[in-house]
Computed example of a mutant assay.
Amino acid sequence: MSAKVVLRSGKDRLRYAVSFEFLLMVILVPAGAIFFDKPITEIGVLGIILAVKAMILNLAYNRIFDHFDTKAGRVSSQRSQVGRILHAVGFELMLLISSIPLYAWWLQITLLDAFLTDIVVTTFIVGYTYFFTLGYDKAFPLPMPSEFEEI
């Protein structure tokens, strides 16, 4: 026997990704414009590019992470504290590696400055990811299956 596990739908994953990126941009674009002394539109376009890249990676990453939850017999909204931390850190590491060249080119800064910029942004986003996902899981919980089926 194995427990029946409920996964988030594609529509739910899309809602998560879009709402995650929208709120993040509302926070980071004005801060980036002030920090780099650039027009908000210039930082906004960079933000949109990074957000689209992150959403695509987010959909794939969460699907893979949910697969591991399923193998462990749990639903994603019931993830442990350690599981949530691993989820957030792993995703941000993947984004860090893929974003450094874009930061350097777009902002006309060195790779080292791009790395340091991304470290600051990533550090913020790791905490943001944890709290956003926790809030999302509370706002849109998945039901705990009560049925067991034989395989």
Score class of each variant (00 low, 15 high):
residue 6 V to G: 10
residue 93 L to I: 03
residue 148 F to A: 02
residue 10 G to Q: 00
residue 116 L to K: 07
residue 29 V to S: 01
residue 41 T to K: 09
residue 48 I to T: 05
residue 107 L to D: 11
residue 64 I to N: 07
residue 34 I to E: 09
residue 59 L to M: 14
residue 87 H to C: 07
residue 22 F to L: 14
residue 59 L to H: 04
residue 30 P to N: 05
residue 73 G to F: 01
residue 147 E to V: 15
residue 28 L to V: 05
residue 143 P to E: 01
residue 29 V to E: 00
residue 111 L to D: 08
residue 119 I to Q: 07
residue 115 F to G: 15
residue 131 F to L: 08
residue 32 G to A: 14
residue 49 I to G: 14
residue 54 A to L: 02
residue 104 A to F: 01
residue 77 S to Y: 02
residue 40 I to R: 02
residue 148 F to R: 15
residue 70 T to A: 14
residue 27 I to Q: 09
residue 48 I to M: 05
residue 50 L to P: 03
residue 103 Y to I: 04
residue 131 F to C: 02
residue 127 G to Y: 10
residue 130 Y to W: 05
residue 39 P to S: 08
residue 49 I to H: 14
residue 42 E to S: 04
residue 132 F to A: 15
residue 127 G to M: 08
residue 33 A to E: 05
residue 134 L to A: 08
residue 93 L to M: 04
residue 88 A to T: 06
residue 10 G to Y: 02
residue 105 W to R: 12
residue 14 L to H: 00
residue 44 G to Y: 01
residue 61 Y to R: 12
residue 91 F to V: 03
residue 31 A to C: 06
residue 2 S to A: 13
residue 99 S to Q: 10
residue 138 K to P: 07
residue 147 E to I: 15
residue 106 W to K: 08
residue 58 N to V: 11
residue 76 S to E: 13
residue 70 T to R: 09
residue 15 R to F: 10
residue 108 Q to C: 11
residue 81 Q to W: 13
residue 39 P to M: 06
residue 82 V to Q: 12
residue 139 A to Y: 07
residue 79 R to K: 13
residue 99 S to W: 02
residue 10 G to F: 00
residue 137 D to K: 03
residue 42 E to G: 00
residue 37 D to F: 01
residue 33 A to R: 06
residue 107 L to T: 09
residue 112 L to E: 08
residue 31 A to I: 15
residue 6 V to S: 14
residue 116 L to M: 07
residue 73 G to S: 04
residue 43 I to D: 09
residue 74 R to E: 01
residue 40 I to T: 14
residue 144 M to E: 14
residue 98 S to V: 12
residue 110 T to A: 04
residue 89 V to D: 15
residue 39 P to C: 00
residue 129 T to G: 13
residue 48 I to C: 00
residue 95 L to E: 04
residue 118 D to P: 15
residue 11 K to D: 02
residue 16 Y to P: 13
residue 79 R to G: 06
